[in-house]
Simulated assay, not measured.
Amino acid sequence: MIFGLKLSHLVAGFIAVLLGYTSSVAIIFQAIDVLGASQAQANSWMLALGLGMGISGLILSLRYRMPILTAWSTPGAALLVISLDGVPVNEAIGAFVFCGLLLTLTGLTGWFEKLSHLIPDAIGNAMLAGILFQFGLGIFASTEDNLPLVAVMGAVYLAGRRLFPRFAIPAVLLAGCVFCAVTGAFDSGAAVDLSLARPVFVMPALSLPVLIGVGLPLFIVTMASQNTPGIVTLRAAGYAPPVSACVTVTGVTTLLLAPFGGYAFNLAAITAAICAGPEADDDPDTRYRAVVVAGLLYCFVGLMGAAVISLFLIAPKALVVTVAGLALLNTIGTSLHAALAAPERREAALVTFMTTVSGIGFLGIGAPFWALLLGIGTGAVLTGRRSRTLAPDRRPA
């Protein structure tokens, strides 16, 4: 143990960064391509995003001693892919700055924190279980891609949970890497770019149509599809995150880094669940150290530009999906149990869970937001109905 860091902190932080990049970096590249940015600007985007996630996560986790991990807005990147076509780079940057301003004002006013307290615990846990459910399914879907690899990792996981539960996930990751190295599953033919990223400043330009058509939707998607699940994830793990401070820090980070390509930052959900669960540390008070590791790795990846990203991308998909799914199994089970424990909330929780798993989306906003609305609405109707049904008969005898 060095500087209070345990092996579990190192592994959880590494898995969070690995999952964060491999799961959505391709979408970022698509957005950059649609915008027509130069290679230097593309490297600057990855530098800004890596440093933004790393520094904001380090600030929040060290200040509040909680596993508060931040991330780029993945739904926001998907939105950019379909909305940046034909938009000049400087006007796109102006939209990013506008989004950062809205995020900052949202954090400073505190209205989002007040709204977040209206989400019942059962509904929040059901949404979290639904978000993570696909990662659990990914373990079994990966058997079609590489059955021997998944079987080896699954066997090591079971043995680890039985014999050395605290080190089960590190053992799974090590076994998967060794298996891939021995069988040649790593993509050895992929080119590795060793260039260092340099910041490229783009002067923002304000265009009302772009602000309304790109900046405002980017803000809404980031808040609804990223920050809300991020808060729920931390609360489901037993923490009381400072919501307004978190949104303010990510908003200011977006404001500062938007001219360099840091289009939107927010609270992480899926990767945060890895750092906030018992696999990261048995002691909830020191799990934040896994985020410290992740934050430092994010900064390193950002500074190295495309070089480290290339290394991330040579790993077979089955390795990444399986280790992430196994690392999240305990969190999925705990969330489902908490969501369905109270009979009076069970139907509402099921509606929330199934809506989240369905993956539906309207108005550019993903399933978790609509799952919350449907779950809260269902709970309000059924709770009111049960209250009337169970009310004592007060008619005069």
Rank of each mutant, 00 (worst) to 15 (best):
Q39P: 07
M1A: 12
N227T: 08
G154Q: 09
I376H: 00
P204W: 11
L132I: 12
P120S: 04
G52P: 04
V381L: 12
G13R: 04
P368R: 02
P204I: 04
G238D: 11
L390W: 03
T334P: 02
L62V: 12
R386S: 14
L329K: 01
Y21E: 12
F362N: 00
T228W: 04
L340E: 05
T352F: 04
C299K: 04
V323W: 10
I169K: 02
T106L: 12
D145Y: 01
N266D: 08
A240D: 15
F167R: 09
N330M: 14
F3M: 04
L326T: 05
V214Y: 01
L328S: 05
A327P: 01
K6P: 07
A155P: 08
F219G: 04
C180M: 08
A338F: 12
S225W: 09
P75Y: 04
T183R: 15
V210M: 05
L158I: 06
S56Q: 05
G384L: 03
Y263E: 01
A236V: 07
A181K: 03
I2C: 08
A324H: 00
S38W: 06
G20F: 06
S310Q: 02
G160H: 00
I131C: 12
A342T: 14
W111H: 09
E347R: 05
G13T: 07
L234K: 08
D145A: 13
Q39L: 13
T233G: 06
E113I: 06
L174I: 15
F3K: 07
I139E: 05
G295K: 06
G36S: 10
L303P: 02
S244Y: 06
A175H: 03
A338W: 05
R65P: 13
A191Y: 08
W111K: 08
I2H: 13
A324Y: 02
I131Q: 12
I82F: 05
P209T: 07
V202M: 07
P343K: 10
R345Q: 15
F219H: 05
F179E: 02
N146R: 02
L350F: 11
V25S: 14
A168Q: 03
A122T: 14
I2L: 15
M203H: 03
G377D: 09
G136C: 12
G295M: 09
V293M: 14
F133I: 08
G107S: 10
A126R: 05
A324E: 01
D283N: 15
A327T: 10
G302R: 02
P120R: 07
Y64R: 09
S23E: 10
N125F: 01
L196V: 12
F300D: 01
A71E: 02
A175L: 14
V291H: 03
F353D: 01
L80A: 11
T70F: 03
K317Q: 15
P242G: 13
Y263R: 03
I270G: 01
T70Y: 00
T356F: 10
V182R: 09
T104I: 01
A37K: 01
L102I: 13
A155W: 12
T356A: 14
A236G: 15
A171G: 13
N90E: 12
S73I: 11
D33M: 04
Q226C: 10
A16E: 03
A171F: 05
L216Q: 02
G333L: 14
